[in-house]
Simulated assay, not measured.
Amino acid sequence: MTLTNPNQELKRDLQGTSSDLKWSAVELMRIAERLSLAGNEADAQAVIRICVVMQAGEDRLVGYADEVKAGKIVREQNK
């Protein structure tokens, strides 16, 4: 199925935001590791919990992008 320009844009936006979340979670995990090594385990665990939430959001966005590709989610063209 060929995607319309608005749907291609939507898919790219979803994939881009998903990638941003993934990159941010990786960086936060590095920060959590440094916090833990510095003896600040409570804050390290808080940052890890944030990463888990971000990774779940990343997974949802990837799923939405797949649904756009399959034609299950459609962005209407501006009239």
Rank of each mutant, 00 (worst) to 15 (best):
M1H: 08
M1F: 12
T2N: 08
T2D: 12
L3Y: 01
T4F: 04
N5Q: 14
P6Y: 01
P6A: 04
P6R: 11
N7W: 03
N7A: 14
Q8G: 04
Q8C: 06
Q8T: 05
E9N: 04
E9T: 05
E9W: 09
L10C: 05
L10K: 10
L10Q: 00
K11G: 00
K11P: 04
K11M: 11
R12H: 09
D13L: 07
L14A: 04
L14K: 06
Q15T: 08
G16T: 02
G16A: 03
T17R: 09
S18M: 12
S18I: 10
S19C: 13
S19E: 14
D20R: 12
L21T: 00
L21P: 02
K22R: 08
K22Y: 07
K22N: 02
W23G: 06
W23R: 10
S24C: 13
S24P: 01
S24V: 14
A25H: 00
A25L: 00
V26W: 05
L28W: 05
L28A: 06
L28P: 05
M29A: 08
M29T: 10
M29L: 12
M29S: 07
M29D: 10
M29H: 11
R30P: 11
R30N: 13
R30G: 10
I31P: 01
I31V: 14
I31Y: 14
A32C: 13
E33V: 11
E33H: 12
R34Q: 13
L35F: 11
L35Y: 15
L35K: 00
S36C: 06
S36P: 04
S36Q: 09
S36T: 03
S36M: 07
L37K: 10
L37A: 15
L37Y: 05
L37H: 04
G39I: 04
G39S: 04
N40L: 00
E41C: 14
A42D: 02
A42W: 13
A42G: 05
D43Q: 13
D43A: 07
A44M: 15
Q45L: 11
A46T: 14
V47R: 03
V47W: 06
V47P: 00
I48N: 03
R49K: 15
R49P: 02
R49F: 14
I50V: 08
C51F: 08
C51L: 05
V53K: 04
V53Y: 06
M54D: 00
E58S: 09
E58N: 03
D59Y: 01
D59A: 06
D59I: 14
D59M: 10
D59E: 09
R60C: 15
R60G: 05
R60K: 09
R60D: 08
L61I: 07
L61R: 03
V62H: 02
Y64Q: 05
Y64D: 03
A65S: 02
D66M: 06
D66T: 03
E67A: 13
E67K: 15
V68W: 00
V68M: 05
K69Y: 11
K69R: 12
A70G: 07
A70P: 00
A70F: 15
A70V: 09
G71M: 12
G71E: 06
K72M: 04
K72W: 10
I73S: 01
V74I: 10
R75D: 01
R75Y: 09
E76S: 15
E76T: 08
E76F: 15
Q77S: 06
N78W: 13
